[in-house]
């Protein structure tokens, strides 16, 4: 059969390439699976997603809002706003968030930071909505 012929025509190097790429995929999948417990930070401006990153990547991100630049710091698996051009700095005072569904809002600068869980089925918060 033709397929068998082609299989036979694959050189040893071809097979080595196929196997090593598959192995690389597997390693990368495992690596990512280990490094990410499933939480991601998302930033919205006027309902539009402007930034998205896993909570595990430590960094400080400048976010452009309508008033100016708000600095979001991702550190130690939590996200918080460290500086903001808004007058009352409520967003800075809201502290760090790290749980799925938590939000920091900077209303004057029209930015919304939220933590979302990658695998929704993995962790059930036990409620649908939070009254606070």
């Amino acid at each position: 059969m033709a397929l068998r012929q082609i299989w036979a025509r694959m050189t040893r190097l071809d097979r080595l390439i196929v196997v090593s790429v598959a192995f690389l995929c597997l390693l990368l999948f495992i690596g990512i699976g280990l490094s990410r417990p499933g939480e991601t930070v998302e930033v919205y401006r006027d309902g539009e997603l402007v930034f998205r990153a896993p909570l595990q990547e430590e960094r400080t991100v400048p976010l452009e809002g309508s008033l100016g630049t708000t600095s979001l710091m991702i550190e130690g698996g939590t996200a918080r706003i460290v500086d903001s051009p808004c007058p009352y700095k409520v967003c800075v005072g809201m502290g760090a968030i790290d749980h799925s569904g938590e939000i920091i809002a900077c209303v004057p600068n029209r930015l919304l930071v939220r933590v979302v869980s990658q695998d929704e089925s993995g962790k059930e918060p036990g409620y649908d909505l939070l009254s606070r």
């Binding site: 690389l24 998205r52 896993p54």
Partner: peptide, 28 residues
């Protein structure tokens, strides 16, 4: 931002599959 690199493994997997298929077709 570096988040896009999380797409690498699935893309690589797709590349592997489509690469093999295309290679077979090309060989034939």
């Amino acid at each position: 931002h570096d988040g896009v690199w999380f797409l690498l493994p699935p893309l690589l997997l797709i590349a592997l599959v489509t690469g093999i298929i295309n290679g077979f077709v090309a060989d034939a």
